[in-house]
């Protein structure tokens, strides 16, 4: 019986991330519109868009290879698995032992690899620009992410997410500057990875500014729907990651039973809404930066991660 319940919790987690992801995207869009004193689309608009796209015919370019058709599903699958691994409402899930930060980073990296390939597959110049920019951003964001992982692993003694959030919940963690640095760096990485405003504008098709949109420009129909869902999942993943590492309060600990999951879910929903609100506020407050300034922005994240690791080393060696 317990095995079945554990399994049900794991399946619920997978479905929760899948169903919540478009809602989070819609929520951020709505808040941004309200901040600009516009009415904005309704919260469920992303779901409607997805259904609408699923009903549309797929238009393929003549010289599109099999890779072009397979890539959306690969990207979606890896992103979904990664998103389902991050603890959302509880840590004691069946597959939490696989929820390793390095594994999640690797899953996202492979999704990005396929996306970049698909962007170049048809041979249009836009796709090429998008892919090359995405790779430039990735080459800076991934080292930064690894430094963040090292900082956290030095503190928690593990790269496993459930262990990390357990350590963060325990009183012996104290007040650590390295944690603050890691949080800042992770926020910068999350903004860059999700193509949010200072790095890329998710709402535009202006060729000078787009990165993510340029790569998916050739897609249509159900392929586009799957890619958009993957993008929403990625946003949800990063928000959940920040929540589960830095604000783990309310997270149901391992072995607490299934009754606690309701409280955990409520806390998670509240934290997710707060995260979306902050993201919308941040995006409204600042302007998009030039592509050539992005390396500086991401370099700051790398530097913060390195500094966090270094500071952690000295406070540990004393």
């Amino acid at each position: 019986m317990a095995v079945i319940l554990d399994f049900a919790a794991q399946v619920a987690q997978m479905l929760v991330v899948l169903l919540l992801a478009p809602l989070l995207t819609g929520f951020v869009r709505k808040i941004k519109a309200r901040l600009l004193r516009r009415q904005g689309p309704p919260l469920i608009q992303p779901y409607r868009d997805l259904i609408w796209l699923l009903h549309k015919e797929v238009v393929l370019a003549e010289n599109a290879s099999w890779l072009f058709r397979v890539a959306p599903y690969l990207i979606f699958a890896t992103t979904w698995v990664a998103a389902a691994l991050v603890p959302t409402f509880g840590t004691g899930l069946m597959f939490s032992w696989t929820a390793d930060l390095i594994a999640i980073t690797a899953l996202l990296a492979s999704a990005r690899f396929f996306l970049a390939l698909a962007g170049m597959d048809v041979g249009t110049s836009f796709g090429g620009i998008g892919s090359s920019r995405e790779m430039m951003i990735a080459s800076l964001a991934e080292p930064a992410m690894m430094m963040i992982v090292f900082t956290l692993a030095l503190m928690a003694g593990s790269t496993q997410l459930s262990t990390i959030s357990g350590v963060m919940l325990s009183p012996e963690i104290g007040l650590r500057i390295s944690l603050g640095l890691a949080l800042l760096a992770l926020i910068i990485v999350a903004i860059a990875e999700n193509a949010r405003i200072p790095v890329d504008n998710p709402a535009t098709h202006l060729e000078l500014t787009m990165v993510h949109e340029a790569m998916v420009l050739e897609y249509s129909g159900r392929h586009l729907a799957v890619l958009e869902l993957a993008a929403s999942l990625k946003l949800l993943l990063y928000v959940s990651l920040i929540i589960c590492i830095f604000v783990p309060w309310g997270l149901v600990p391992t072995g607490a039973g299934h009754a606690g999951y309701v409280i955990g879910a409520a806390a998670y929903a509240a934290k997710l809404a707060a995260g979306g609100l902050l993201l919308a506020l941040f995006e409204t407050a600042i302007a998009k930066m030039r592509v050539f300034r992005v390396p500086n922005f991401l370099g700051a994240a790398l530097m913060l991660g390195l500094l966090g690791t270094l500071l952690r080393f000295i406070s540990r060696s004393l």
């Binding site: 104290g174 007040l175 500057i177 640095l181 700051a300 530097m303 500094l307 500071l311 406070s315």
Partner: peptide, 25 residues
């Protein structure tokens, strides 16, 4: 003692961080 040290570490580390921010500007 742990908290005292942590806060001192926080401020001193913050100073290094602000130095980096100056380099960045």
């Amino acid at each position: 003692d742990g908290l005292v040290f942590d806060i001192a570490h926080l401020f001193a580390g913050g100073l290094v961080l602000v130095s980096f921010m100056m380099l960045y500007q």
